[in-house]
Design a protein around this nucleic acid. Structure first.
Lengths: 194, 194
DNA sequence: GGTTTACACTAGCGCTTGCTTGGTTGATCT
DNA sequence: AGATCAACCAAGCAAGCGCTAGTGTAAACC
């Protein structure tokens, strides 16, 4: 019987599922498609996951967990100034899009397909990540680096960043660091032109 | 037989479909649900639309068309300064979220469910809207109102604005004009605090 | 060396899906 | 008065859906 274990096989399957969910969307991805991609038959899939919902939850949990870890790490490694911390957060966010893009896209666009139980569980993770952003933005406000309403500014910034998954091309010339720098320059009152 | 006509009934059905697509998502909205919401039987639905895809296309087309019309109108009515034009665009965008929210959410989140033919047709409309934004941002750059990379700034702004559908509460205290003002203040180099 | 465990298979059940078919109604036009 | 037409309904088909039941097998464990 399957449980909610964390076998390495399950991790690999979750990664493959994320890719398919991005390509086709959760609802259009059938268990048979998932199984084929994984090289097994559809019945065998339910040895690893209780049901299709649990696969979605696993994908989103991993993606959000990674983003949170990376953001924490970035904040610890950077300097203390509000400017540096703002840069670090933006850079970390964009870097996860390179390493973990699929899981992120799923988290953003298939969130509503989670059932109530999974959503309750995962919203804590998501909130933790958003609160991290709000804290850094608070610091930037306090330091006089940016101005405006705390709530609105953080939403605008999150929107600008999350929207990047729609157009950002990892193969292109622009590096995550460039984007992070440009974004921070846009919202701070600096007057340097690029 | 049904054609791609523009009967008033069809418009009404499109509006109802938009609401259901937002509530449930396109894939989870069955033709039976749509029919019930419209007060008819599922078979009768195919008198008005060739297939389910066409309903989605109709919803998105209307929403985007309206947004484009409103933006054009706003630009004509406002002053000539880059600042005024920036404000006008932001205000128009947020106002459509009040009057036409459902269609917009569908356009943003169910775009990928369009088949290739519909997508090709509708992408022209969407591009026209985005180009309008880029033009206004170009003007703001030329006027020295904002700084940075033309492409990046417009993407960031579009992201911040489109993300509003996730958190903006039309019943709340914040009015579209407030948001528009705050957003423009954030990206321009003004140093006024609010 | 016997038992357990992890992982996979085959086969298919019960249900829902988008869509079709053939026919009925009431208003409008000639 | 007859013809036309948009709008609807009842019934159902073929395909696909998530998921289950029961079995096989090789490695791991006591």
């Amino acid at each position: 019987m399957n449980v909610v274990n964390e076998s390495p096989r399950r991790k690999e399957l979750t990664r493959l599922a994320a890719q398919l969910f991005v390509q086709e969307g959760f609802d259009r991805t059938t268990v048979r498609m998932l199984a084929q991609e994984m090289g097994i038959k559809s019945g065998s899939l339910f040895h690893h996951f209780r049901d299709k919902q649990e696969i979605l939850a696993a994908v989103i949990e991993e993606g959000t967990q990674n983003a949170l870890t990376l953001a924490h790490q970035a904040l610890e490694e950077c300097g203390d100034s509000a400017d540096e911390r703002l840069h670090a957060m933006a850079r970390a966010h964009l870097q996860t899009l390179l390493t973990d893009r699929n899981a992120h896209v799923v988290a953003l666009y298939e969130w509503r397909r989670l059932d109530a139980a999974a959503r309750a569980h995962l919203s804590h993770l998501r909130d933790a990540y958003e609160e991290l952003w709000e804290r850094v933005i608070d610091e930037a406000l306090a330091a006089g680096l940016i101005h405006g309403d705390r709530f609105l500014v953080s939403r605008f910034v999150m929107g600008a960043l999350n929207w990047t998954v729609r157009w950002y091309d990892p193969e292109g010339a622009r590096k995550p660091d460039d984007l992070a720098h440009e974004l921070v320059a846009m919202i701070t009152s600096s007057s340097r032109a690029s």
